[in-house]
């Protein structure tokens, strides 16, 4: 397991050279990985299901886009702004969502994303509404690497962000805070009985997840130079959740594997059969839920006949 991150980075670097004409698609995968990792922090670590992570992703995208247009087009500063926007929205909504459990919590996460979508839709003068936010022109990354129209800079930039986010979440997962989230996931009653402030831990986890999603959104805004209402859509939230479950929750690798698998199958199936590709996706999800309920990361264990 120790070498797995290096293997991923090596594969991602190899992909750059093997598929030079698919960089836009590969970059979309990387951006999506950031969003799915944020869901893994909330669902995989803390055990709180969410179907509204697009709210924070969209908030980060719009914040970074607006910041680039009106204030400063520096990419790294934009990422920070996007992360802060996602964190702020997650903190405020988390104060309410984390007071509830289960279905109620899921409904609230959906509601928050829908409200954000409607606000972005109505505030046409600021967000561009259904037209999308246009006119984002980024400066070179760190003042050195200009974005090119083939997407080479964008690809490496996104890959580095994925690595940083992955490493940060891995560190948090092993730290006392991450352990306490696993504790809440395993037994909320036991955490309460040892005096842990469960509610505030979850609010903080949700806020951190929001920051990560916001960074993902900012990345998308900077690289595609466009923010559309789709960034706040329910579909995006749901797909992020499906990708995570496909890969397996709670270990970060699952988020990476699930996203790559889902998006690749989606890409190929949609290219081969633009009308029926959803059948392929549906079949894949069904098969996974039946045969590998703990996700692709449990494949090795399942083949050996072990427990998840």
């Amino acid at each position: 397991m120790r070498f797995l991150p290096l293997v991923f980075v090596a594969l991602a670097a190899a992909a750059f050279f093997v598929f030079p004409y698919d960089l836009a698609f590969l970059t979309r995968i990387l951006i999506m990985i950031v969003l799915v990792l944020s869901v893994d922090l909330i669902l995989g670590y803390a055990g709180v299901p969410t179907l509204g992570q697009a709210a924070m992703y969209g908030a980060g995208a719009y914040a970074a886009g607006l910041f680039a247009i009106h204030v400063w087009a520096d990419p790294v500063a934009g990422l920070i702004i996007g992360g802060l926007a996602g964190a702020a929205l997650a903190f405020v909504s988390g104060l309410i969502v984390m007071r509830t459990h289960g279905l109620t919590a899921i409904m609230l996460t959906i509601a928050v994303a829908q409200i954000c979508l409607e606000i972005a839709n109505r505030a046409r003068d600021i967000t561009g509404g259904a037209e999308g936010l246009r006119g984002i022109r980024m400066e070179p990354v760190l003042g050195l690497f200009a974005f090119d129209f083939i997407g080479q800079t964008g690809y490496w930039y996104a890959l580095i962000v994925v690595c940083v986010v992955f490493a940060a979440l891995a560190v948090i997962g092993r730290a006392p805070f991450g352990m306490s989230l696993r504790g809440i996931h395993e037994s909320r009653d036991r955490m309460l009985a040892i005096g842990a402030p469960v509610y505030w831990r979850l609010v903080l986890a949700y806020t951190l997840g929001g920051a990560v999603a916001g960074i993902g959104g900012a990345l998308a805004a900077q690289i595609t130079q466009l923010v559309s209402l789709e960034t706040l859509s329910f579909t995006l939230s749901a797909e992020a959740l499906i990708m995570l479950i496909l890969g397996g929750t709670g270990r970060l690798y699952g988020a990476v594997i699930g996203t790559v698998l889902f998006m690749t199958v989606h890409h190929l199936a949609a290219a081969n059969d633009p009308f029926n590709w959803l059948f392929v996706i549906g079949g894949m999800v069904l098969a996974m839920v039946f045969f590998l309920p703990s996700g692709l990361i449990s494949l090795g264990h399942a083949l050996k006949g072990g427990r998840k």
Partner: peptide, 26 residues
């Protein structure tokens, strides 16, 4: 009422981390 998927060691460490106020360390 334990943390079933965590090891014995991790289970016992959890209350100590809470008692010592380490819970927010990242």
């Amino acid at each position: 009422t334990l943390f079933p998927r965590l090891t014995v060691r991790d289970n016992i460490r959890m209350p100590i981390l809470e008692r010592e106020g380490r819970g927010y360390r990242l």
